[in-house]
Write a protein that binds this DNA or RNA. Sequence first.
DNA 1: CTGAAAGCGCTTACAG
DNA 2: CTGAAAGCGCTTACAG
Lengths: 309, 309
Amino acid sequence: MNYQPNILASTLASKKTYRFATFFPEPASDVSYWNKPLIGVKRAFQEIQQYGVEISNYQFKQSEAKSFKNTAEEIMKNPPDGVVMAPFFSREARQFIQQLDENNIPFVFIDSNIKDCEKISYIGQNSYQSGALAGKLFNFSIPGNASILVVHFAKEMDNQNHLVQREKGFYEYFKENDTDKQKSLITLEITNPADKSFYRQIDQVFKKNPNIKGIFVTNSQVYRIGQYLEKNNIEGIRLIGHDLIKENMEFVKNGTVDFLICQRPEEQGYNSVTSLFQHTILKKEVANEQFTSIDIVTKENIEYYKEFN
Amino acid sequence: MNYQPNILASTLASKKTYRFATFFPEPASDVSYWNKPLIGVKRAFQEIQQYGVEISNYQFKQSEAKSFKNTAEEIMKNPPDGVVMAPFFSREARQFIQQLDENNIPFVFIDSNIKDCEKISYIGQNSYQSGALAGKLFNFSIPGNASILVVHFAKEMDNQNHLVQREKGFYEYFKENDTDKQKSLITLEITNPADKSFYRQIDQVFKKNPNIKGIFVTNSQVYRIGQYLEKNNIEGIRLIGHDLIKENMEFVKNGTVDFLICQRPEEQGYNSVTSLFQHTILKKEVANEQFTSIDIVTKENIEYYKEFN
DNA sequence: CTGAAAGCGCTTACAG
DNA sequence: CTGAAAGCGCTTACAG
């Protein structure tokens, strides 16, 4: 018939309790990117805790596949009723997934995806498109025959696969939209960003290529280039990077960074938990892929992208 | 003490039922802007109906203050427990608010704001900033000494006050960032957009100002200019407008419209209802102003701004 | 005005 | 295996 169970009465009667585990990279500091998904997780928790949901937050080191593996084992010592994870290390993630499957524990992915497995949902950005968007913004805002420097901070704290996809989308954009190859793209790999000796590397690139009118940083460390430009009093360069972390925000506000391409990490965290809740407690269907929007943040609209906290 | 009432048990026991009223402009068609807030309202309803919430949707004609007044009276014949309204006609809205106050009925504003009254919350965009953002996008993407045509569809279906604020922000941006007044701004008022005779008006403006490199449409009717440009095979003009309605989306996808500045109307609808719910049923505090983000939508990221439906 | 009892729509442990 | 009873944490109508 048309029977709709009363979920309130149901959870009240069955004093059942659920425990979800989140499994994210450890933030480097308290202004780092990976604090943001946790803000969304907390918000979701506040809304659903009355349904008897608890949440345990686990972390791994972004530079150590082994720490992913170790913490995964720790999680399985006290198996939760659902897992939200950022599957950075695909081999270790697959091992973990196998254990979850064996224990019938549902899981959702956040930030990165693993395609061929029985996840409840993937929540994150389309990195390829975000790279293409960066290409578009440069193409619109610098002269036809200018050069663009693509800076790739290699030892950074992001998932490498994302960066590859972003660069791919970026280069592909120019292949398709700059068919007579007026613009030239110069790539620079910086392996040790914390050490400011990379300033000299950039100096040299500028000397060789005086026509550089734009710099694209493929991850959230665009503030390091902002520091470089300000220190050397270089103006008239379009600077585009990623992610609304605190260090980047001041450079957007003072105009050194022109565009920041962002992905709503708080919303990703929030949606990852509520998706697990929908599936596990409410027994409702959850979309298998939930792409978050690719936001263009500037000096003029940055005020309205500070998400809930 | 630290007593936290169990809201589930509470709503289960008190078979109390709540009725909220929404009071929005009547959409001109089923692809118009004002359908979108209702999508968010429906989504919110699905989540909170188990708490005994019902929602009645009322509408007024955007061109008739009288229809606002009449429907407001109808609403008060069967007073709801909360109201979400778009206070387009400030005089009539104030009269309605007075009645709500007398009956102790809480209300939230969506889309437009009235400042000096006891609303639970205002949910909407900062229109001034969205105008400034349009200015920035032109300033970045057209040559220094070009002209920009500002098209103002006067008899359009939006709240006039928004348009005024947007234009203000737009002009102010150039006042501040184009201090040597290289760029010239030309304003064109079009009073009867449905009649394509306005094409000749634009023809004339183009003849007089051959250096026009950008067109800014202050509302969602940018597709009409897109139609004009395509019909006349005019290329190389930056075209920027507002709102992710169906007619505009195809022009973004084919590149005729370069940027669409948007305001997440579904999210506004959703948040307006959940804010009323928070206040009325959960007795929680609600932020007095909830500005939604000012999104920049392009061919490259439009795919990820289709909100839930 | 106060306080004990009934009941909201379910689940679950238990008697048969 | 089946079905009636107790109870989840509250609210409300009602007896005193």
